[in-house]
Every structure is written in C-alpha cells, then in structure tokens.
Design a protein around this nucleic acid. Structure first.
Lengths: 354, 354
DNA sequence: CTGTTAGCGCATTCAG
DNA sequence: CTGAATGCGCTAACAG
C-alpha cells in the first residue's frame, strides 16, 4: 500500500452473471465504467444522475444480478425497515405468534426476520439481551421478544415483549390472562366433580407459569377444595420433564382423577404417559392443557385446553412496535388478552370407568 | 487526518450501562483504557492478551452489557454460523417446515434465521433470488429456500430448495411425492364410488401443483373414469381464489360429488363455501385436501387429506445444507419424501344424503 | 452530473 | 503483550 504506483484491479472481463462469489458494488461500477457512488445513487433512486448513465448502470446491475448487501447497508444506515422477532426456539407456541406477527406486518412496509437462539436457552438465561444487542440498531429497527426470561433490558430502541417471564416490566408487553385462564380450566374440572386434581407445573421462573399455578390454587380455594401438595409435579414446560412429572403423578398410590397441565406440550406428554401406563383418558383420567396449539386438536383423544390467542399476541405486539418505531405514544403499555376454554375429548366426570 | 495533532475522543465518563444507543467496541475500549483490538481479542478469546487486561476488559464488557454487532462481524468475516431460511410468508406450510428445520439445527452449532418477504411475492416472482443476494455471503453461511418460484439461482453458496416450483433444478432439492400423493387422494375418492370429482387446482407455475393435477388425471385414467374438464377450477393456492373456484364448482347445474383440493388451504376454503351454500360435507360433498397442515384437523368436519411430511422436509433440507457448507458431497441431490393419506371426516360414499 | 473521501463496527495483520 | 492501520460493502457529504 506504500507502493506509489496505483495497482488497478485486473479488469473484470466476464459479461455473464458471475457465479463465483457475491457481486459487489465495486464490480458493477467497474463493469459499468463509473464510480461506486454513482451505482449507489442509481440503486437508491437518488437524484443527480443523468438518464443516460442511469440506464446504462441499471442494465449492468440487471445483467450481473446485483443486489445491495443487507449487512453493509445496515451498517451504514440507521433504518433498515426490518423488524426482528426473537424466539428461544421455533416451537408451536412461538410459530403461532409468528403467524400473527406476519399477518400484522403486511402493508406496514416492514419486513420480518425471525431469530432463533436454537433452543439452547439453558446456557444463558439472558439470551434475549444478547441477541437484542447484536441486532438492534443495526439489523433491525425494532424487535419483538417472545417469552423473554428477562425484561429489564434497557434499550432506547423499540422493543415489545410477548408473554414475558417476569411480572413487572419496563418494556411494553402483551400477554394472555394466565390467571383467569387457569382458573377457568380448573373450574371446568371441579365442575365435572373432580376433587383430586393434579398439576404438571411450568417453569418456576416464568410468570405465566406462576400465574397458572396460582389460578389452580384459587380455583380450588373458591370451590372450597383443599389442594393436595403431593399432586403438584414440576414439568417445566419441557416435554421430557413433563413426562416424568406425569409418570410420578400417575404412579402415586392414590393417583389424581384429573390433571391440569401448565401448557399443551405438558398435557400432550401426560396423554402419552397415560397411554403408556394403560390409563384411559378420559374415563380414568381427565386432562386439561393450556395454549391450544394446533397439535392439541390432533392428539388422541383431542385435548381439552385453555385457549390463548397466540396469533393475536403476535399481531398486537407488531402493531405496538410499529407505533413505537413511528415515535407514537402507546395507548396501553401492558396488554392482557382473554383466554377461552376449548372443550374436546379429554375431560369427563370422574369415576366414569367404574 | 492531515492534522498532526492527534485528537483524542472525549473520554467517556459514564460507568453505568448506557441506555442511549448500542454499546460499541469503541466505548468499551475507551472505558477500559485499552484499544479496540484488545477488546476484540478478549471478545473472541484470542491469545496474546495478559490475564490482567483480559480480566479487566471482561469486567467492563459485562458492566456495559456489550455484545458484538452481528452486522459488523458479518461484514468482516466470511463465516457467520447462521443459516437462513427464506419463505415468501409465514403461513402453515412454511412454519411447519420451519419447525422441522429448527429441530435439525439443534446441535449443529448454527443459528437459524427465518426471513420473510412479507407475503408480497406478487410484485416480483424472483424474490428469493434478490433475498439470497442480499444475505448470502454476508449474513448467512447458507440458505434454505422454501417454495421458491425460481431455482436457477446460480450461487456458489450452499443453497437447498424445499418444494421448488420448477422441475429441473440446478439446486439440491427436497420435496414430497406430489404425484403419488395426489393419486392416493383421488384413488380414495374413486374407491368410495365417486365418479364426478372436481378439483380446485393450485398455481399453474408450480411443479407441485402441476404434479397434483397430473395425479388427479392419472388416477382417473387408471380407474377408467373420464375427466370432466369443466370440473377443474383454478384456486391458485390462494384462499380467496380457492373460495371463488369452489363456488363456481358447487353452483354448477350438475355439481361434483367430491372435490380434490390442491392443498389444505384450498380445501378449507371449499369447506367454507360448502357450509355457506348449505351443502353438507360429507353427505352431499366429499373433500380431500393436500398437506395436512395442523389447521386441517381443526376444521369442521376434520379434513381428510394427503399428508406431506412438512417437518421432515425442513429437517432434511437443513441436514443437506449443513453437509454442503461443510464441503461434503451430497449422497442425493434430489430427495423425494413419501406422502400418506389421512382419513378424517370429509369423505364418504356419494349419494349418502338421498 | 460525477467522482473522491470518510466512516458505520469489527477482526486482523503487522509494528512497536 | 499491545495498539495503529487496513478493509469488509455501502451511503452520504463534499469537491470538482
């Protein structure tokens, strides 16, 4: 580089789209015999380029199949017109939220990028903080956090949390009414006549899980039915652990006649274990889940569950985020959506077998 | 830069995580009193840093909550360890593929980013080519294209297409056996005794749609039943257009006794229209779909459909891509997966009403 | 109307 | 062991 003689890039001879590596603006410029800034102007439709050169450059761009690199552009500009959706993993719940987000984003002019931590949330609880740091302000203009474990992330950037794990949050949030939903589910069981109801609980650190357990207890209290603590087992929203929990419950000397699972994944696992143990559902065991993921209807038998408006969660979160990015004031910073009970075939009155 | 006097950055005084904009490596360096390159080395665990400074810098990094910018790093490095999955839109089919991809990516060390064109595929058919250009080689190490409209994308970069629209492809592909599946679905109807079978066809430009129509015809031919061309209507895989097609078919003077829809979305639309028109399913009309998206089981009545292993498609695509990125030779460049018939409640023998 | 220049944030030689 | 310099691909001032 101290060489006084300017070394010209060996002229690019090819006239066909190069299949080698990415086409860069440099190459387009060289090929068109103009400077990179001119190409940039043409690409972005900026004024200050003669129709002639503009046409010529456009032709070269087409021929080479050139596209600006999202990355390079992001680094230079503040705005990217893309919204990020960060999930711990792509599972039924988050993908439903994703569908709702996709619906909401149509017509906003934004693009949606879904980022997954690859399911390895265990290594660090604060995955969302890290990911946020990595993409906010560069790759995306704003982000939706799905089921974040920590919401004290302090960013000036627009961020909305869906179904956050912690209660009080400095972030705008949108979540379902977990307490009310759980009460509804357990009330259903109680109304059916069940008095020994077990629960496969969710992750202890999640508010949604805590609220569902609280709903379980409140429903009992309201009905004047005492809660047998030995009937609660930790499922942690994990399929394997939920199976283990269900197994423990069903192998009890006096097993419960019904089980309320903290989410559908756990309920499905419970169904599995019941089948494995030869326990008939719903005759010998009633099961109620939470979420109403699409898979729950496919279960054998179809799962009775508390429906949470997952798509709506995604939809509303995007709407809030877009408003936030536009600099608008939010009418509501903490949105709570209603839940409903979906009765299918896993619940019936106890003792139906005998 | 011609200034002989070195202008120092005004020292950053804050000692708390700055809530302003992103924390940059510069700020960390300034705060720690070292150079950016040292910070970089610490971040990446490179050798050549004393334990002392390393510890000190680490502390500052933690305190400031610093994370490297994905964008800046991507620009600098070739490898990013992230795999991109490009979809036209997040709908039931693509999200199922996404789930399979997520399963497959676990333990590979890669992260998965799903990119959506926001549903506006109409404006340009070659959206995937553009997107690919924008992210390949920078943001991602390789990409999976879901339902690409064009597969003549010529990149050296590792790319795998799922359910591609065109037949011959230079790209490695993984798709379901559409021909066989369609035959199976129509055979089912034929076996039930139906002789006037309508079809809501898919998008004319998609091979998958073409194959399904061909399967429809082949099944008829094999059974010696002539195809009534007036019983085919274009649904184009679009909910609205499918409704229109179904309406046309059902309002025919002599309507079909059964309808084979090119995909579940179309079948669901057909169910809707039937209900609207007071046509009972399955007594007056049998319906068979294709895909077996989760939603199909939730339909009223639950939809009989040809199941395509959507998650498997995603899973296999990722496996192929990872092998490709690793520089391995692919055992099979065009994988075809089997389909199965899922009988639910939308099909029965014709004339069950009378 | 066009080209030159200067970074965006980071990782990497290469001197000191 | 550390820091200054260089450039990834691109856009935005500023000169010419």
């Amino acid at each position: 580089m101290t060489d006084p003689v300017k070394v010209e890039e060996s002229p690019v001879e090819q006239t066909t789209p190069r299949v080698g590596s990415r086409v860069t603006m440099q190459q387009v410029a060289a090929e068109a015999g103009v400077s990179v800034s001119t190409v940039s102007k043409v690409m972005n439709g900026r004024y200050g380029v003669s129709t002639q050169t503009s046409d010529h450059v456009s032709k070269v761009i087409d021929r080479l199949g050139y596209e600006t690199s999202l990355v390079a552009r992001s680094l230079r500009n503040t705005r990217t017109n893309v919204i990020g959706l960060l999930v711990a993993d792509f599972e039924p719940f988050s993908t439903e939220v994703l569908k709702g987000a996709a619906d909401a984003i149509r017509g906003t002019g934004y693009e949606l990028v879904a980022y997954s931590a690859g399911g390895r949330t265990d290594e660090h609880v604060g995955w969302e903080r890290r990911y946020l740091s990595r993409v906010m302000g560069t790759l995306v203009d704003g982000a939706v956090l799905v089921t974040p474990t920590v919401t004290d992330v302090q960013y000036d950037g627009p961020v909305v949390a869906v179904d956050p794990h912690t209660g009080r949050s400095s972030l705008p949030t949108v979540a379902a009414d977990n307490l009310q939903g759980a009460r509804m589910g357990v009330d259903h069981l109680l109304a059916l006549g069940h008095r020994r109801i077990g629960m496969v609980t969710g992750r202890a650190d999640l508010v949604s899980a805590q609220l569902r357990e609280r709903g379980f207890r409140e429903a009992h209290a309201a009905a004047g039915v005492p809660v047998d603590e030995s009937l609660l087992a930790l499922g942690a929203f994990d399929p394997e652990q939920a199976r283990e929990a269900a197994r423990t419950l069903l192998r009890l000397p006096r097993p419960p006649t019904a089980i309320f699972a903290a989410n559908d994944i756990s309920a499905l696992a419970t169904l599995d274990v019941a089948a494995e143990l030869g326990v008939d559902v719903p005759d010998q065991l009633s099961v109620v889940g939470f979420d109403n993921i699409p898979e729950s209807a496919l279960a054998h038998p179809p799962l009775t569950t508390v429906q949470q408006p997952m798509r709506q969660l995604g939809h509303d979160a995007i709407a809030m985020l877009v408003a936030l990015i536009a600099g608008e004031e939010l009418a509501q910073t903490h949105v709570i959506l209603e839940t409903t009970l979906v009765r299918r075939r896993t619940t019936t009155a106890p003792g139906a077998a005998s």
